[in-house]
Design a protein around this nucleic acid. Sequence first.
DNA 1: AATGCGTGGGG
DNA 2: TCCCCAAGCAT
Length: 383
Amino acid sequence: MLDLKEYGIIMWDAEKIASFRRTLLDWYDREKRDLPWRRTKNPYYIWVSEIMLQQTQVQTVIPYYERFLDWFPSVRDLAEAPEEKLLKAWEGLGYYSRVRNMQKAAQQIMDDFDGQFPDTYENIAKLKGIGPYTAGAISSIAFDLPEPAVDGNVMRVMARLFEVNYDIGDPKNRKIFQAIMEILIDPNRPGDFNQALMDLGTDIESAKNPRPDESPIRFFCAAYLNGTYDKYPIKLPKKKPTPMQIQAFVIRNMKGEFLLEKNIEGRLLGGFWTFPIMETDFIGQQLSLFENDNYVLETVSQKAIFEKNYALKPDWTDNGFTPVKHTFSHQKWTIEMVEGSVKDDKLPTDKELCWVAAEDFDQFPMATPQKKMIKTYEDSKKG
DNA sequence: AATGCGTGGGG
DNA sequence: TCCCCAAGCAT
């Protein structure tokens, strides 16, 4: 067991802990949000909600949650679903490995747990895509097990309660907050205790613009009482996303269909369909070639590279589309679109390519950058 | 241990 | 408009 004193944290006595639990749970009983996944103890439903809620806000999740359970009512349905339907169910939510891992976990439940959702922390934590936070959340909410669910909210609230001088963004410090929570958690209502802290951290004790005077636990909060509230939690700034210049090729055949390509699995937006794209940070620049005893500078165009890689000879119709901007967690794209049309639409076989009519776009899983490109293209044709 | 992996909302 | 942030996990 980790010794909190070594981290400069003075734990409360039993009476204060009991008082804290009562104060927090009384507030939760009055103020808790009525959310779809709070009307059930079905571990499958709880699991779906917890995976969707990873790094994703409640308001965004609700419609996805309802539709997901409609499409995949049971673990078995999820285990047997085709990949395309999985991606459609998650389209627009982001972090798509979440849903791939969920399907693997559903298959683990069918194969290793006889189709029954595991009911111990240890077995729940064996499932793909379930880490310490999610294992704690499911254990406590669905099975009433006294397991902490340490997420960003809990770390923030705990850091303020005890003036924890350790960076909450550093994974190795997670164990400090885990140790605090193992002592504080109410063994009689562990699920409510965990969710109360999340509700509190989401709104009143949020990261930006918190309202500490409204917190039901302010008189337990060292940072509040000592006037150091603004100093906690300690969190080092993240790295900024890398700017990247991208070229997209909007190519149509004689039927007016668009060329789409399926992204390679295991990479960014793997399995989703997009207009062919190319990173152009390093091309479109001048290359030196050795020719006739001299070096000559030659500008290699993206279009030439496209023609070679896709074995197509489009007639290019340049028409200055507004660049599409899209920021991922780690990359910041500026996408320039170019348009072309082909008479001969025979496609190479070394890539997953197909011609698709605009009215059939919704049958293909498409991520947000592609949706933005389609909108920009259509808007330019209208205006 | 550090990095890859999305997206939408709020200031 | 741009920047920061949010109910993490896998490798």
